[in-house]
């Protein structure tokens, strides 16, 4: 089940159907007491049908806020604007009235969070929690919902599904809870699954199981996945296409093999070089000096310029988004001349 084999097929599907998610120039700000802070700016990407798109970035990159914006779960003081944010080519997620949005949430778009224990209701049996979206969205009878729930529990690899149906979250281990979260997210067979650091809180061996499970479910149900993570390893393992975010912007987007073979943006390069790898022994890791600028003090030019080894004078001007062909993009002056324009 190598993803290499899946890949060409995915591409064909992407070209045939409208993408599941199209985001263009997404901007998210938070209103404060007297000023508002923009934490995500000019973010554009698409998620094709059946595709796994990984958004990778460090803290402060805006990757999670982006996913919350798409899911519509931001706090009330958030302002979301976008020139385009379409779901399945039809629903405008920015202007969707909340009633219609609720009908999409949990049914067509669903989300898995980092910490399964806090995302589950401690006083409700896990079976009921899985059945809830079925009863709400698909108006199934109690009995039918239970049957589908047990089925869902089995599909996420939970042994003794009938017994687990009436278990409470605290009785389950971290890995089991995350499986439950995935079961809740997938029970209505959504078109898009947003997974926000789904394995960060888990042990290594459990992480591998959950990733394998998500790959399997993607193959069997054709659900597209938007995977938010800080871990390049998870990206390498899962993604078809990668969006690299830095300080609230997309700095690079490329197909996963291409990105790992030839990272373009200096930030992506630095990120890869600073990740320790078990295949090689190094005395010193490359490290990126300094830290991410805060939203209130964003530089006007390239946001990475202050930490970039290749910074030039022109970098104090707003960097261009350079198209590099085959869907790859980078936001860097270094590539300004290579622009294919095709």
């Amino acid at each position: 089940m190598t993803a290499t084999a899946d890949f060409p097929q995915q591409r064909i599907m992407t070209e045939k159907h409208p993408p599941v998610l199209e985001v263009e120039k997404l901007q998210i700000s938070f209103r404060g007491d007297d000023s508002s802070t923009t934490v995500v700016e000019d973010v554009s990407f698409t998620v094709g049908r059946g595709e796994v798109v990984g958004i990778v970035g460090e803290s402060g990159s805006g990757k999670s806020v982006t996913s919350y914006g798409i899911m519509g779960v931001l706090p009330p003081n958030a302002e979301v604007t976008a020139s385009k944010m379409f779901f399945a080519g039809a629903h405008d997620l920015v202007r969707l009235p909340s009633k219609k949005r609720r009908r999409l949430q949990g049914k067509e778009i669903s989300m898995v969070f980092q910490e399964p224990l806090t995302s589950l209701n401690p006083l409700m049996s896990v079976g009921k929690q899985i059945a809830e979206p079925l009863r709400y969205h698909e108006k199934l009878s109690r009995k039918e919902a239970k049957r589908r729930t047990v089925e869902a529990l089995r599909s996420v690899g939970i042994p003794r599904a009938e017994q687990t149906y009436s278990s409470y979250p605290h009785e389950l281990s971290g890995g089991m809870r995350q499986r439950i979260m995935i079961a809740i997210a997938l029970v209505c067979e959504p078109q898009l699954l947003i997974a926000d650091e789904p394995t960060t809180a888990l042990d290594v061996s459990v992480e591998a199981q959950i990733l394998r499970l998500m790959k399997k479910l993607r193959r069997t149900t054709g659900t597209s996945i938007l995977l938010i993570t800080h871990d390049l390893g998870v990206i390498a393992e899962m993604a078809d296409r990668v969006v690299v975010m830095y300080a609230g912007q997309v700095v690079e987007e490329a197909e996963v093999y291409e990105l790992f073979r030839e990272p373009r943006h200096p930030y992506t390069k630095a990120l890869m070089a600073s990740t320790p790898k078990i295949e090689e022994v190094r005395d010193e890791l490359e490290s990126i000096p300094g830290a991410v600028p805060t939203p209130s003090k964003m530089p006007t030019g390239c946001r990475f310029a202050a930490r970039c080894p290749k910074a030039m004078e022109i970098c104090s001007e707003r960097p261009p988004e350079v198209e590099l062909g085959s869907g790859a993009k980078t936001r860097c002056w270094l590539y300004a001349e290579q622009e294919t324009g095709s």
Binding site: A3, T4, L232, E237, Y257, E279
Partner: peptide, 16 residues
């Protein structure tokens, strides 16, 4: 051995 194998790969070429 299992722990090493569970660790996420460092490049997509090593998938599987």
């Amino acid at each position: 051995k299992a722990l090493l194998d569970s660790s996420p790969v460092s490049s997509p070429e090593l998938r599987g």
